[in-house]
């Protein structure tokens, strides 16, 4: 039964480069993350103005998910659960919020920043974009945990909670960022195994 599941696609974004199923599909060196993220948005013709209101974690998750889920329009395919993870939770945005409330004489916290001070908000952004009403979970790990994600995704599909699972790692900490997302389903090129997930992640 375990061998019936596959990795149907994977996307890696890091060092201002986007890899889709192992191939470089976009690169823009020498810019900060927001500028790079905008270049990805433009390159792939995304039309979604709310993107520019998102924090960096949500922008990163949104872009990786968008590249993987493009073309997923049938009702059945939209039963896609989300299982994401990272190391720094929403720390990048938490810091911005903290800066705005540190000075008691200039205490003006931004509601638009505050709403992103939870890591799972990025899954909400993906769900809104792709009309997903599915299971979702966000885990905090010290490092990428292929074993845990493998078990969780398999359980969701085998228990018929989802047809597919969008899994992976989304981490943003100041200038450091990395997204590695992959879709688990019943067809695909790679067998869904811990070894395969690890291999794809390390082939970054």
């Amino acid at each position: 039964m375990i061998n019936d599941l596959f990795i149907t696609g994977h996307c890696h974004i890091r060092d201002n480069t986007v890899f889709l199923n192992g191939a470089v599909v976009h690169e823009q060196k020498g810019t900060d993350f927001p500028t790079f993220a905008k270049s990805v948005y433009q390159k792939f013709g995304i039309d979604y103005s709310k993107f520019f209101k998102m924090d960096n974690l949500s922008k990163l998750a949104f872009l990786a998910a968008d590249l993987l889920l493009k073309g997923n329009n049938s009702k059945e395919e939209r039963n896609i659960a989300l299982v994401l993870s990272n190391r720094t939770s929403s720390l990048d945005t938490d810091r911005r919020h903290q800066e705005s409330i540190t000075n008691k004489d200039s205490y003006f916290p931004s509601p638009a920043v505050f709403v992103y001070t939870l890591p799972n908000i990025c899954m909400g952004e993906i769900s809104i974009r792709h009309q997903l009403h599915s299971e979702n979970a966000f885990f905090i790990f010290e490092k990428f945990n292929a074993e845990y994600l493998h078990t969780y995704a398999e359980s969701l599909i085998l228990d018929k909670k989802a047809e597919q699972v969008l899994c992976g790692w989304i981490d943003v900490d100041n200038e450091k960022y990395e997204a590695f997302l992959y879709v688990v389903g019943k067809s695909g090129t790679f067998t869904h195994s811990i070894a395969q997930i690890t291999r794809l992640y390390q082939n970054k």
Partner: peptide, 17 residues
């Protein structure tokens, strides 16, 4: 302009600040 409820809160903060 299609602003939303969070934008409304931002405008309230802007008036104050």
């Amino acid at each position: 302009l299609g602003l939303d409820s969070i934008d409304a809160l931002e405008l309230i903060v802007m008036l104050d600040k």
